[in-house]
C-alpha cells in the first residue's frame, strides 16, 4: 500500500485503520511533499538557471535571459514530479543530489572557462 492511495482514501476509513495517528502521518507526508515541491523545486530551478546561464552557446546577456525564462519550466516539472513519485523521502535525496551535481557542473565549467562565446553584447 503506497501513501498515494492512502492520501485519497476517505478519512473515516483511514481513521478506523490507523486510529488517531493517521492524521498526523498524513499531514506529515503532505507537508513533506509541499516543502520538497516549493523549496526543493526552487532550489533545483535556481541551480539549473545558474548552470544554463554559464553553458548555453549564446552571448552572456542572452545566456542569462534564456536561462531565466526556462527556469519556471524546471520548477513546474519538479513540483509535478515530487507529487507523483511513490517514495516518501527519496525525492529529497534526488533533488539535493541533482542540485549538487548541477552546481558542481557549473563550478567545473566556470573553472575550466568552458563557454562558447565569452562576454559579448547584443
Amino acid at each position: 500500500m503506497t501513501e498515494k492511495i492512502e492520501m485519497t482514501r476517505p478519512l473515516t476509513q483511514r481513521l478506523t485503520r490507523w486510529k488517531t495517528s493517521t492524521i498526523w502521518r498524513d499531514s506529515l507526508h503532505v507537508g513533506n511533499r509541499c516543502l520538497a515541491a516549493i523549496f526543493g523545486g526552487y532550489l533545483l530551478s535556481a541551480v539549473a538557471t545558474i548552470l544554463l546561464a554559464q553553458i548555453l552557446p549564446l552571448s552572456q546577456v542572452d545566456r542569462v535571459l534564456t536561462a531565466m525564462m526556462l527556469s519556471f519550466t524546471v520548477y513546474t516539472c519538479t513540483v509535478l514530479w515530487v507529487f507523483s513519485v511513490k517514495s516518501m523521502w527519496r525525492f529529497w535525496l534526488d533533488i539535493l543530489a541533482l542540485s549538487g551535481l548541477l552546481y558542481l557542473a557549473y563550478l567545473a565549467t566556470k573553472a575550466l572557462d568552458i563557454n562558447p562565446i565569452q562576454g559579448g553584447g547584443l
Binding site: A46, I50, L52, A53, Q60, V61, R63, V64, M68, S71
Partner: peptide, 27 residues
C-alpha cells in the same frame, strides 16, 4: 517572465556579480 529578475535572479548574479547594471544597460 515579467517579474523574473526578481523571482529567479541567480543566473544574473553568478554571471554579472555586482555589475548587474551592465546587464540591464545592454538589455
Amino acid at each position: 517572465v515579467t517579474l523574473m529578475f526578481m523571482y529567479m535572479p541567480w543566473g544574473l548574479s553568478t554571471q554579472y556579480g555586482d555589475e548587474t547594471q551592465a546587464f540591464y544597460s545592454q538589455l
